[in-house]
Design a protein around this nucleic acid. Structure first.
Length: 575
DNA sequence: GCCGTTTTCGGCCCGACTGTTTTCAGTCG
């Protein structure tokens, strides 16, 4: 069982306990443990073998024993007994909006509803409205919620979420009375996938703004409408929330809605210890007087903390670090001076070498690497060894035209074949300016085999960067089942750089492992993998991964100046 | 069930909105 599977088990336990009516703090403990497991950088089995399970935040004696049992037997007696008491089919009811554990328990115990289908039947037959606390409207809301489930898309990818949010924000900013409007929630934290969109606005009179929002042409139905908060479902099934406060309270609003929830809980605990109370409108002193904040900075200052960048607000140690003035320096998009992975018309991309070089120069880079696919990746029209010579001529010519304003490296994204060998022979790789090696195919090989495949490539002295290490494509293609402990150790030994691929359906290396890599001092390359000139700018998504991972900027090879980058390549045998 | 610069036991964050209720429970973020 891996970390995520264990986390799923504990989330399931938490939900079943909630339905059962167990004290809330027990269920919270299981949720917290589950979240901890999901972001754990190393394989859980290594903690288990070393008897370090209780070092994991949120894991105490009881949960450690359950992890042990699951790892040893693949089963959990406690869960089996829980499922005897509370039918696990009830969990699907929790998917319906506006249905929580209390309602599930009510429908189950008083109407005999155990599945989603039974719930819909009961609702349509008017069997729910007579239950205590229920009524006509609640029943209709449940039917609407069940219908919404089928419309509701899964989580959005970061880049898609930003484009929808930006569209709403620009309309919002032109509404009368709107002083400021920003994205908040997981989008502002640049989480790799986004559930609902949260927008916040500072405005003098919220009523007309809320009216505009709830009558938006893309609105399919209104989920809620109030003075300070409204919520709608769009035609494409996405939910959008809009929060409003007067300008002088915008800071607390933005902070509150940006979350994460867990980060906010930490802040409020801290506030409490200082005799303060924090909510979306103000910080309130013991005597009931309010402190107002138009910006976020003052909030953190009042709590005795460094300002915490949104990307770090996940309750992964940032509050403690901010209290000790120990927050890391983070990479900024402007720090990048090179892009070392992109494609041209020599393989499957849209623009020429010169187009890409000019676009990269506009971004202020000193170097770009043209890394077209190799012939083994047939689908991408890869470049043969013979083609390389012609490409070299073209690069030399463009280089001459552009002079010293930007350096063009001839590289390749070499295919790591299913048998673990590379698509070009070593003597060809040796002559290139830079080599990125990537997995695209046979990603479903068993863990040992695919890990070995990658490790051998890491050890190849002619490979400089491992491109998108797992090969995942969100939301549909899972990455390879790599043994990351081994991959990271080998990368550290070999001095190879691991890529953060900035394409928002990749974001690979995953932030969890980037954080570990940073602690281990492993080099990282943040690359766009651009197939058009526009896509060079998608590098911001890669930067967001680095920031969320607390990555030390000095480890990012494309933040280095040209001399340092050249020296590094020389140290790897490049001329 | 977890956790500790006020604690190894007694805490564990805060409010808006909705619908069903006449003061509150449930859900959500």
């Amino acid at each position: 069982m891996n970390n995520n599977e264990l986390a799923d088990v504990f989330d399931k336990i938490a939900s079943l306990m909630e339905i059962k009516g167990e004290v809330i703090y027990k269920t919270l403990a299981y949720r917290r443990a589950a979240e901890s497991l999901r972001v754990l950088p190393a394989d859980i089995s290594s903690y288990w073998k070393e008897e370090r399970l209780t070092e994991i935040p949120g894991v105490g004696k009881a949960i450690a024993e359950k992890i042990s049992e699951l790892l040893q037997t693949g089963e959990l007696d406690f869960l089996n007994r829980l499922e005897q008491e509370v039918p696990p089919s009830l969990l699907e009811l929790l998917q319906v909006p506006d249905i929580g554990p209390k309602k599930v328990a009510l429908f189950w115990k008083q109407a005999g509803v155990k599945t989603l289908v039974e719930l819909e039947t009961a609702a349509r037959n008017g069997k729910l409205k007579t239950l205590p606390g229920m009524g006509e409207k609640s029943e209709a809301r449940i039917i609407a919620g069940i219908e919404a489930l089928s419309r509701r898309s899964k989580r959005m990818l970061l880049g898609n979420a930003w484009s929808i949010a930006n569209r709403f924000l620009s309309e919002l900013r032109s509404q009368p009375g709107v002083v400021r409007a920003e994205a908040a929630g997981s989008l502002r934290r640049w989480k790799q996938t986004i559930g609902d969109l949260d927008l916040v606005t500072a405005c003098t009179d919220p009523a007309p703004v809320m009216e505009w929002f709830t009558s938006h042409p893309e609105c399919h139905r209104i989920l809620g409408k109030g003075e300070s908060k409204s919520s709608i479902e769009l035609n494409n099934g996405i939910n959008v929330q809009l929060w409003a406060q007067p300008p002088e309270r915008f800071g607390t609003l933005l902070q509150f809605v940006s979350g994460s929830k867990e980060h906010n809980v930490r802040l409020r605990e801290l506030a409490q210890k200082k005799g303060l109370s924090l909510n979306e409108q103000a910080i309130i002193r013991d005597d009931g007087s309010e402190m107002l904040f138009s910006d976020e900075e003052g909030i953190y200052e009042t709590l005795g903390l460094q300002f915490v960048p949104p990307e770090l607000r996940e309750d992964r140690g940032e509050v403690q670090a901010a209290g000790g003035n120990k927050l890391p320096v983070l990479v900024k998009p402007g720090d990048l001076q090179a892009d070392l992975h992109m494609h041209t018309t020599w393989s499957d991309a849209a623009h020429s070498t010169k187009d890409m070089a000019l676009a990269a120069r506009t971004l202020g880079y000193h170097t770009l690497a043209i890394t077209d696919h190799t012939s083994g990746l047939g689908i991408a029209g890869g470049l043969t060894v013979e083609g390389l010579a012609e490409q070299r001529k073209e690069i030399d010519q463009v280089q001459q035209e552009l002079g010293d304003t930007i350096k063009i490296l001839q590289g390749a994204e070499v295919e790591i074949k299913a048998d673990g060998t590379l698509d070009y022979p070593d003597e060809v790789l040796k002559k290139m300016d830079i080599v990125v090696a990537s997995l695209h195919t046979s990603l479903r090989q068993p863990r040992e085999r695919i890990t070995e495949r990658l490790v051998n490539v890491i050890r190849n002295p002619h490979v400089d960067i491992i491109g998108h290490p797992s090969g995942r494509l969100m939301p549909n293609r899972e990455g390879a089942d790599l043994d990351y402990d081994q991959v990271l150790q080998e990368a550290q030994k070999a001095g190879v750089a691991l890529e953060i691929n900035a394409h928002f359906s990749r974001l690979d290396l995953d932030e969890i492992y980037v954080r570990r890599a940073s602690e281990m001092g492993i080099l990282i390359a943040i690359n766009s993998d651009a197939h058009t000139t526009d896509q060079l700018e998608q590098i911001i998504y890669g930067v967001s991964v680095a920031r969320r991972a607390w990555l030390n900027p000095d480890l990012v090879i494309n933040t280095w100046d040209r001399d340092r980058l050249v020296d590094w390549l020389k140290s790897r045998g490049r001329s």
